[in-house]
């Protein structure tokens, strides 16, 4: 198939960006979306033009590195699918495709489609962990955990830290990402000791990074490639209120 791409080009963090149009020919339906961009980039490079910078690594939907807004949707049209797992059979000959970076104050554009998501790491640094040093652990089976709780923790822990939830949110809120971590640890007995402070400290950092507030649009849940449920936001809000009474540290 032949396609027309409109891609955001921006040469650096402070540069002015714009959409540029490229035509790509003979795209196979078996290609992944990123492989289609590879083909474009090889072509640009041999013509002496600068290839389109985009982030990617595992190409298996697990590392969370890739991320781009495709036709207005973070990660593109398929539900629960990262950009790297999207295949060209989803498109048809003659399609025009708009490709842009995540847009959020807390995710500055570094180049073309690459943004800086360091703010996510800083949120985790404020409490997205269990404070246990290596060597302190008791036997793994000494803490039985019901399958239900373990499954719930796993549902939340499946977050890949891609940032699509932020890109989808009209307020650029990072609630789903933050709630996924709070929900993962809060579903497990190991996470209870620090539960009262975790939500508070992480949410405050989220605000400090310039992410917006949550006004219940649920766009995040729809865009999340890992199907993280917005229910975790409700759970985090409860923890947050509880810790407002308990104080933060």
């Amino acid at each position: 198939m032949n396609l027309r791409l409109h891609i955001w080009r921006q040469s650096g963090p402070d540069a002015q960006g714009m959409l540029k149009t490229y035509d790509v020919q003979n795209v196979s339906e078996h290609m992944s979306f990123l492989e289609m961009l590879d083909v474009l980039n090889e072509d640009l490079l041999t013509k002496g033009e600068i290839p389109v910078a985009f982030d990617h690594d595992c190409r298996e939907g697990i590392c969370g590195t890739c991320g781009m807004v495709i036709n207005g949707r973070p990660h593109g049209p398929l539900v629960r699918t990262t950009a790297c797992q999207l295949h060209m059979r989803t498109f048809k000959d003659g399609d025009e495709i708009y490709i842009e970076p995540w847009r959020a104050r807390a995710f500055p554009v570094m180049r073309d489609l690459i943004v800086d998501r360091g703010s996510f790491d800083r949120i985790i640094q404020k409490g997205g962990f269990v404070s246990v040093n290596t060597g302190n652990a008791q036997d793994g089976n000494a803490i039985p955990i019901s399958k239900k709780d373990a499954d719930r923790a796993m549902d939340a822990a499946a977050c890949i830290g891609c940032g699509a939830c932020v890109a989808a949110c009209p307020n650029s809120s990072a609630m789903l990402f933050t709630a996924a971590k709070v929900g993962h640890l809060g579903s497990l007995p190991q996470g209870q000791t620090e539960r009262s402070t975790r939500a508070m400290n992480m949410v405050l950092q989220m605000d400090a990074e310039g992410f917006g507030a949550c006004t219940n649009h649920y766009e995040c849940e729809a865009a999340c490639p890992k199907g993280i449920s917005a229910e975790f936001i409700a759970q985090m809000n409860k923890d947050f209120v509880a810790s407002a009474f308990g104080g933060r540290d």
Binding site: F129, V130, V132, T134, G135, N136, A137, Q138, D139, G140, N141, I143, P144, I145, S146, K147, A150, D151, A153, M154, A157, H184, L185, S187, L188, Q190, G191
Partner: peptide, 22 residues
């Protein structure tokens, strides 16, 4: 064996049986 213990303590959600064991 210590690795599993350490990871459980960190909150790694390993698969569990219905009885709650790994």
């Amino acid at each position: 064996t210590s690795i599993i213990d350490q990871c459980v303590a960190q909150g790694v959600p390993f698969a569990r049986e219905y009885g709650g064991y790994l």
